[in-house]
Write a protein that binds this DNA or RNA. Structure first.
Lengths: 257, 257
DNA sequence: GGGGGCCACTTGTTCAGACAAGCTGGGATC
DNA sequence: GATCCCAGCTTGTCTGAACAAGTGGCCCCC
């Protein structure tokens, strides 16, 4: 693993922070010292600490040593695409059941989001997902036509559709755009989640793409309030240096259209 | 803008994308070509495109040219701290009114979040904020004792407390941690926002720090549903396996504690 | 025509060195 | 004793070079 030296260094530093070797508020060693200690160049060390900064674990100001901001682990935004992956990482037992699976004409919004013609067909899937046995999430997804064959024959209790079609059909979600807001529970939501109609639900709608920028699916997730929250760390000086890394994430409140 | 060379290059590229010179799905020039065109080294160009990637505008895969993912502007997560700044950038008229301002003992949660003793005082501020004349946000903030003097004497209609205390007292929020979920409107929320009690509200709670990691405030914002949504772009880059994160921002659904 | 392999191109990673800009602490000064 | 200034440290930016690894297209062969 670790194909990369800077990931290796970042992993070690992260572990030191998580283990409490560096307390919150403590100063990290200087880049030169870390470079010497690891036998790497300063540029490589900067990629490593840049990774940690992007995770919100450490902060930095020009001229002063880097500071430890947190000692808890945060998972990547990359996992925002996968409820199953996130739940597994949190140590929760997750299960899912597909309640409906039909091919139908795309709605105007679906067609627009997925970038297909208004008359195109999509595969509509309704799923109810549980966390530790409790129903917490109603998921409504529209898959584009070219993805549909990979999804059509999956078992109803498939835990992670994303993972499965990635392995079986080589369809990997590389990018995602998410819209998060609150919405009143509809009658179907209320019945499935066991809440009162009109009560608050946390809604996450998202579009995923392949690495080449081809849309895969448009999903509407509705969470039981209190079961999950979205956590975000940000930094004013968030200038992503050479790190390519990844996942970059840009976000901000948007006016609902 | 004076800033740095790579910011200058990023600004120019961003403008080209926004202007439609590069359409969604189009390929950007290679790094070498950009470097030659700008008379900069490849490293500097990589910093520039890394910035765009962190904004979700472009994506990249090893071996293939960078692709344009979007042509709309997205603001930085940095503005997540400031409703006023964000609204201004969106071209909306924003106004605020402080309805209550009292010094009282910190609640257990406030003390814990702000890292102060359970007996400490905080300055509690209740604000109602409008967008284009409509009330959309109820804001409840607890300021730590050392910040309180800068906030105590602000006028009731101060549009941006963050900006004002940054200019007047030099207190600048450098980092932030945000928790986003949905909650039922309480009776005070319902009265102020003009919704039914128990109806859905989008809640954003956040803690801001100075550059040195010192907590400034703990805030509970409740938005009228439909008035705003949070938008997030993510990219599952480099690491084929799980873990480590994104760049400028790390976030993910968290189980509410 | 279809399949396979080769190759040029592009991005990812790393290095070593240089200067600019901001911070900190200690010493000199008032 | 309080204040100011500076020298040294640390992070931010930039250069030029090199190799590794993945992509895409072209060409050849079957």
């Amino acid at each position: 693993m670790s194909g990369s030296r800077y990931v290796e260094i970042a992993d070690a530093l992260r572990q030191s922070i998580l283990d409490g070797e560096y307390q919150v508020g403590a100063l990290l060693p200087s880049e030169s010292e870390l470079a010497a200690r690891w036998g790497a160049s300063r540029g490589t060390v900067r990629q490593a600490v840049g990774l940690l900064a992007s995770e919100g674990l450490v902060g930095s100001r020009q001229g002063a040593r880097r500071v430890v901001l947190r000692q808890e682990r945060r998972h990547s935004f990359a996992q925002l695409n996968s409820f199953a992956q996130w739940a597994a990482a949190m140590g929760c037992e997750v299960s899912s059941r597909i309640l409906e699976r039909t091919t139908r004409r795309a709605s105007a919004e679906e067609a627009s989001r997925l970038g297909v013609g208004p008359g195109s067909d999509v595969l509509y899937v309704l799923r109810l997902r549980h966390l530790d046995g409790e129903p917490v999430l109603v998921e409504r997804t529209a898959y584009t036509e070219w993805v549909a064959p990979a999804v059509r024959d999956l078992p109803d209790d498939c835990v992670s559709i994303m993972n499965t079609i990635a392995q079986d059909a080589g369809i990997v979600a590389h990018y995602g755009e998410h819209l998060i807001d609150a919405v009143a529970a509809g009658s179907e939501d209320a019945r499935l989640l066991g809440v009162r109609r009109g009560g608050p639900l946390l809604r996450q709608r998202y579009l995923t793409y392949t690495a080449a920028g081809r849309p895969i699916e448009w999903t509407d997730d509705r969470y039981l309030p209190g079961s999950v929250a979205f956590a975000v760390s940000n930094s004013a000086a968030a200038s992503p240096l050479e790190r390519h890394a990844g996942p970059s994430v840009a976000a901000h409140p948007l006016r609902a259209s």
